[in-house]
Amino acid sequence: MPENLSALDLVLTGDPALFAIVRLALVVSLSAVLLAALIGVPLGAAIALSSFRGRDAAIVFLNAMMGLPPVVIGLIVYLALSRSGPLGEWGLLFTPQAMVIAQTILVTPIIAALARQTIEDLWLEYRDELTAMDVRPLRRITTLVWDARFSLITALLAGFGRAAAEVGAVIIVGGNIDGFTRTMTTAIALETSKGNLPLAIGLGLVLIAIVLAVNGLAWALRRAAERLAG
């Protein structure tokens, strides 16, 4: 990116490098949220509906994992994907895929913990009806996930917020390579370290605008769907 331009100039001039960064940031974060949802929602639902020894400890552990330090996750994924690591032969270190893996690990506990709470609350409401209708366990889970879908959007948004704002893990496993693994947050970190604060601030505002837009879109979709389904 030209260093003498502000972020607004970059946006207004349609700077291809900026849009590549924005696109990569969105692809990485949304992919991580999608994968985390595929893992976290069923996991949260299963914990919500099951009773087993150590369930309370599992819930405490899951809730605690919401506060995982990104740099620690970045370091663990780095070690796993490095040439001498157990997954080194995959050759994923310093690629967008590595960033998706790290962010998925960060986001999954958030979605799973929030899904667990949401589905457990709904289960308390539905328990008598579903039991009386002799609904089998798997169908109970799919029913609760479907009926909690509007509330679960909030969990997905919380996960997206975490992924979009995260810098520590992606900079470790992605390497902040210009044109390949540079995202909004890593670009902001780089510009700040170079003393180019106006550009860093401008990029930050662009990032905030993107997060607001995604949340606004999700909110509008949720309201529209709620009006139709109740």
Partner: peptide, 12 residues
């Protein structure tokens, strides 16, 4: 089959 005093409607 049963109808409870305060039936819970599914969100559908």
């Amino acid at each position: 089959a049963i109808v409870f005093q305060r039936p819970t409607m599914l969100r559908r």
